[in-house]
């Protein structure tokens, strides 16, 4: 069947079934290989995920104009957590998928200044302004966190912690706990949580 006709047939079938879902992208599955990507960092250097095979990699979706991100950097120790994870041998990639057309967009040089002021310790701060990588990973919020194993398979995805309002005295730090479990060679017990924050500004 020609491709156009096949597409039309699927559309007719969907209408006949009365399907009204917006049909978002499927989430990544725990234990399966994550999508490869390469992005430029804020200095224009190309960074490839494949370069870090054999290391644990943390992905953090960010937007410095999201109040949740601001709180995590200014009050909840995001920079210290990045430093801790990198010192343990993990790679931490911070990804900004904000569209250039969105009011929250910041140019690379400005982003660099903001995260330096916040004392960020990520291995790289990456630009994904067309949202290609964010959509591949189904990143929904800022922050939205992923932990990738040494074999390139997904170990954890979801929230950074269990404290969306920033009001708890003691919070479960999912990224720290997942990385610790994975580094001990065990399974990550809570390998999915519901991410919270602002929507990614695709």
């Amino acid at each position: 069947m020609p491709k156009g006709l096949r597409t039309a047939s699927i559309l007719v079938l969907a209408l006949a079934l009365g399907v009204v879902a917006l049909m978002g992208s499927e989430p990544l599955k725990i234990g399966e290989p994550v999508p490869a990507f390469e992005l430029k960092d804020v200095s224009g250097n190309v960074v490839k995920l494949a370069d870090f095979k054999g290391k644990f990699v943390v992905l953090e979706w960010t937007n410095p104009n999201c109040p949740f991100v601001v709180r995590h950097y200014e009050q909840a120790g995001m920079g210290a957590l990045q430093k801790e994870c990198v010192e343990k041998g993990a790679v931490w990639l911070t990804i900004n998928s904000t569209s250039t057309s969105h009011k929250d967009f910041e140019k690379p040089e400005r982003l660099s200044e903001i995260y330096a002021k916040w004392k960020a310790h990520a291995s790289a701060l990456l630009m994904d302004s067309d949202g290609t990588v964010g959509k591949k990973y189904d990143a929904k919020t800022t922050p939205h966190m992923y932990l990738i194993g040494k074999d390139g398979k997904l170990l954890y995805q979801g929230a950074i912690d269990d404290d969306p309002r920033g009001s708890k005295e003691a919070r479960v730090q999912y990224v720290r706990e997942s990385l610790a479990e994975a580094m001990k060679g065990g399974k990550v017990a809570q390998n999915v949580t519901t991410p919270y924050g602002c929507s990614v500004k695709y």
Partner: peptide
Amino acid sequence: EPIDDYTIEHSSISVSN
């Protein structure tokens, strides 16, 4: 409504007749 111990894939909720 939110479900304890589960993450809902809201954009993939589908409705038929």
